[in-house]
Design a protein around this nucleic acid. Structure first.
Lengths: 273, 273
DNA sequence: TTTAATTTTCTCATAATGCGGGAATGATTT
DNA sequence: AAATCATTCCCGCATTATGAGAAAATTAAA
């Protein structure tokens, strides 16, 4: 006991790369600035190690030092988001469609993209000029909640649904999508038959009416969600907007599939681990 | 020679973390899809290693598998960009100012933020409705070219400028900002005295008139750039727009400094290596 | 400009973890 | 349902990440 054990690491199961990338998750809108000392405490590693992590992330542009001390998220995220936007055919095709629909919808419109196990807003069309629409891109949706997610879910290939049912059955049950594979599958088939899904499960004051967008026959890429306030919305209104959404998505899908051969656009798939 | 040497790595000087993060740089708008085999060739490492890299990046959401084979940039970049937008006080303050200026400028407006050694467009106000403004956020500017960059440069602290002059003298000379420290410093002082900078060095058909925005007295955070077509722009017009930019930036800076105490907003500094 | 308080990098021995090659598993299309 | 992929797992070896403290550089003040 006369000598301290040197160079013992915090024996975590994940790799060094995972630990470094995990640092970025700490930088949230609530806690946008982290100092080295804060990271030493939070990560439970030595100061030199934190400096190594931070330096690697700074060199890559994922962090930037701020005046005094501390770091914030860096410019590479902004650049990469632009890179994604430039390569995304949906962002070329959908805006004019949203502009056409604006008056008939008279509410809001969301384009939600499918990213493997995640669905997120990629584009929003404002009706209310007070709302800063640019803040919505990047808002995540739970996979099993909200009409945008669930209408995408409903059109996934069967074997992907089987995997989901096996690996995420707790979440599926919690979202009320069925206690077993048969319930889950049948519920989704009903959505598929209807062609669209109206739901009010995220914001109770709003109703979202979503239809799927396909990048190839039978392959969902995204969903268009028409948003209306719940009060005063009749069943007839809902059906009407459903038809509007389905028709718009049909056009978008057609353009998307015509667009694709020209460019190497590719769309994410779900891979359950 | 009867046995191959096992487990020899591509003896590169940089760490594993740097190599993994470097993978992301390959995903550009020109080459948005990379397969594992392409990466094996490009990186010169084993297939198992590439799979390890790709898996770590997928787990972090920086890559997503696409149908068939291959990977594209993942949703985390979109989410992080949103996180940055939500934490950025400039994006709350500047849009209404840009709206006010729209008619008097009658051209374009750029808000360019300073990110250490990088300047990039963070917000754009359109005049021409044909231009998709959302694609401009994330466009990088060379540090020593363009009025947005150079007007920021002109207001950096002296010691930061000394560092730049020492470490980047080739780039500085190439941009015509002076062959030595004295020339460089005097040129920037002239910009500082004028209060704004008009230049036409990036797009020869356009003139950019930029003024600095401060997050604290003497601490530049960004610049506002008013853009006009060069033809038919008189010296008087230029001076007028310069005054408009300076006045607008003064207001923005005041709001920014009033805003700051309430929230933990922090602004990047330049750190030359 | 010079000085003093920081923050950041460097040095080093140690052992933990990433590395390649090949087999086993898993997923997806016909 | 079977065949063809893409992906993960296994394992010995050595490269390379690690913590503590010293040295250097950076920033803010005088």
């Amino acid at each position: 006991m006369d000598s301290v054990t040197p160079a013992s690491r915090p024996v975590s199961g994940d790799s060094s790369i995972t630990r470094v990338l995990g640092v970025l998750d700490l930088f949230t809108p609530e806690t946008p600035v982290w100092t080295v000392d804060m990271l030493v405490v939070r990560l439970g590693v030595g100061r030199a190690t934190v400096y190594r992590y931070v330096r690697a992330l700074c060199d890559a542009g994922f962090l930037v030092p701020v005046a005094g001390a501390g770091y914030v998220l860096g410019p590479r995220f902004i650049e990469f988001d632009r890179s994604i936007r430039l390569a995304d055919p949906l962002l070329h095709i959908v805006p004019p469609v949203m502009a056409e629909l604006r008056d008939v919808v008279n509410g809001g419109q969301l384009l939600c993209a499918f990213y493997g196990l995640r669905v997120l807003t990629v584009l929003q069309d404002k009706t209310d000029p007070n709302i800063t629409m640019s803040m919505e891109r990047g808002r995540p949706f739970p996979l099993f909640q909200g009409s945008p997610s669930r209408v995408i879910l409903a059109h996934l290939p069967t074997y992907q649904l089987r995997n989901l049912a096996l690996n995420q059955q707790a979440e599926i049950a919690a979202a009320g999508l069925g206690e077993n594979w048969a319930d889950f599958r049948d519920g989704l088939r009903a959505i598929r038959r209807a062609g669209y899904l109206a739901a009010s499960d995220i914001d109770k004051a709003l109703v979202g009416i979503s239809a799927p967008i396909f990048h190839a026959p039978g392959a969902v890429a995204a969903s268009l969600c028409l948003v209306r306030t719940r009060e005063g919305l009749t069943a007839a209104d809902e059906a009407f907007l459903g038809g509007v959404a389905v028709e718009a998505c049909k056009r978008i899908s057609a353009e998307l599939q015509a667009f694709r051969p020209g460019e190497g656009a590719a769309f994410p798939i779900s891979r359950v681990r």
